[in-house]
Design a protein around this nucleic acid. Structure first.
Lengths: 354, 354
DNA sequence: GGTCAGCACTCACTAGAGTGGAGTGCCAGC
DNA sequence: GCTGGCACTCCACTCTAGTGAGTGCTGACC
């Protein structure tokens, strides 16, 4: 199914940037066909495209111009043209229609969110699988940050005579835990006493703003437990500054590329959670929703494009969706899927946190 | 570094199964060399191997015999030999020395476990990375099952007027949660009352054995909350029967194989947690520690071998380690790494759960 | 001036022939 | 039973056309 102009006949005129209408149509046709076939596109294949009612000779001269202007490239002299990163960029900015999911995809999304329940982590994980299925790209889902979520509950559960588990529940429904070891035996009564004091000290504050010192009780042993608990809270606040990342459909990368070497380097990047999370944030910070080729500056991903979509809950950022594919990915589909799933996910999260 | 007989000169004689000593030596040499070079091994390359002090002509006739018996195969008439699955099996069972980590690897393991701390999930995740680094295989780590762990704490934390979070702490330090929605507003007092009753009803039992009905209180509203809590506990018990899986170093698969198609199908398998967990359990259940080629019956992994190692805490099974590589993986190294890391991991888990 | 048919040219891709070499199987002799 | 020798096989590589999809250019046409 080629991406035609149809979607733009109803309303505002197509924005062709600073490219003459026919050249834009030719670029559109080349990009569309190359995305579908992965083969260099010759002038003959373009003449029947909408908006191009000239001979192949004329198309050739236009293509040569597009190449001079940096939108197209030739693998070798007597081959067809393939889009450059700049060509994809123009396509995404000016040519690609808003795109939409096909009915099957829409149904899949509806089904998914109707049946999604339970833990948020599990849902995010499954969401990454859904996105990968919808788009045939590798999907990345970054969970909401708990940085500003207030502490709703603090509990100390004894697991052994000198071992306890600090369990913290945040207002957004996240649960975090940290095991604490003591130098001396601590009984349950003392634990619950200390937990009460910990709660008084931290309830309502986000983890990152728990102060280092809690009020003394006078009881040295209890004070020690409380102090350990405060230290635990603070270390949780630091550790979990990093958002959780869920990657789905990484096998899709092995379909998109035929060079094993490329697959390997992309997978290596995907294994580094911090790199991926930072990358997605960087792209969003630069105001892009698509980063093509070298635009994101991560060298091993030079032959990839990334579609990002912030997920917002009640207007506040709460995670990110990312789709990773070859530069010749189906942008309209990827953008549509990211938007639809991002919206539904945001709704869902806001219901859960209400 | 070839895997020689050296490791077995000190004590019990080598077990060559039902293969004559020289043929076993030849098989050993072929497997070792093929693992190192990935090229079919000719008779000339084998004559210098330990235990083979005959001419290449004799080696050839032995190799022909080994081929007739199914241990070796020839890609084509005038090529060298490569091991069959049966050949690898014999190698693993009778020829490969116990193997050991090199000093660098040992240091890595020590470093890792000296600095491992915090949440168990994070540690398991990182363990998979460590194993992948050590062996250049894809590593799979299955977390301990919480099926039989007793409930240590049950709590209901209000997140909204009609929304609460059920938080359960198990004796092994696992924390599980489930959000519960109510039809009517429930205040904190009622929540904590209900939580107390839930605790009385379930403390000390594993999640899977929580009974469906709790004692009535007489207060209809509280009873409803308690009932919802019981339902939540029971659904947690069902959902989390599945152990958690952590996969590390999936990019190594793209190094091991040069056919993209193979990489794709292996990655697809790795994305299916349930399949992987079941596969590992099946292999352990059949009493194997290595499954080679088609032995495990998962068709897309026919060109892979899997090394498994149960992790036990105080003699009781608590998770599994798996290493996935091509059939020509370095078995002694993989077995050694799995054993060492498995032991240390078991120790670590038993300390934490004490 | 833009468009177009025609033409010469380029160059990846394929098929086929030839060659070198690594490897084999077999056999006669020790 | 082991060995050196020998004929044979067949992959991997190179070289050589031949093919065809595609290009750029040009001169004529509207």
């Amino acid at each position: 199914m080629p991406i035609t102009d149809d979607s733009r006949t109803d309303g505002h005129p197509p924005d062709h940037g600073d490219l003459d209408v026919r050249k834009a149509a030719i670029l559109n046709a080349v990009v569309t066909e190359y995305i579908a076939s992965a083969q260099p596109v010759g002038s003959q294949h373009v003449v029947d495209a909408p908006g191009v009612s000239v001979s192949s000779a004329t198309v050739r001269s236009d293509m040569a111009a597009l190449e001079r202007e940096g939108f197209l490239a030739q693998p070798h002299t007597s081959a067809g043209r393939i889009p450059t990163d700049k060509g994809y960029r123009f396509f995404v900015d000016h040519l690609a229609g808003p795109g939409s999911l096909d009915p099957v995809g829409r149904h899949q999304v509806r089904q998914f969110f109707d049946h999604a329940h339970g833990e948020i982590e599990l849902m995010l994980e499954r969401t990454s699988g859904l996105l990968a299925d919808l788009t045939d790209c590798t999907a990345m889902v970054v969970g909401p940050s708990h940085e500003s979520a207030a502490i709703r509950s603090v509990q100390l559960v004894g697991l052994g005579p000198r071992l306890a588990l600090l369990v913290v529940v945040l207002a957004d429904g996240a649960v975090q835990k940290q095991s604490i070891e003591f130098d001396v035996d601590v009984d349950d009564a003392r634990l619950s006493d200390a937990a009460g004091r910990l709660a008084a000290h931290s309830l309502g504050w986000p983890l990152t703003q728990v102060t280092a010192r809690a009020a003394r009780t006078g009881d040295t042993a209890t004070d020690a437990v409380v102090a350990a608990g405060v230290a635990g809270l603070r270390s949780l606040g630091q550790e979990h500054g990093a958002e959780q990342l869920f990657v789905g459909g990484s096998s899709r990368m092995a379909v998109a590329f035929d060079a094993v070497e490329t697959v390997r380097s992309v997978l290596t990047i995907l294994e580094q959670q911090l790199v991926v999370v930072t990358l997605l944030r960087d792209i969003i910070d630069t105001g892009l929703s698509v980063a093509i080729g070298t635009e994101h500056g991560v060298e091993p991903l030079a032959s990839c494009a990334i579609v990002v979509m912030p997920v917002s809950v009640d207007g506040v950022g709460a995670g990110t969706i990312g789709l990773l594919g070859p530069t010749r990915m189906n942008y309209p589909l990827a953008l549509a899927a990211a938007r639809v799933v991002g919206d539904r996910l945001g709704q869902r999260l806001s219901e859960a946190g209400r």
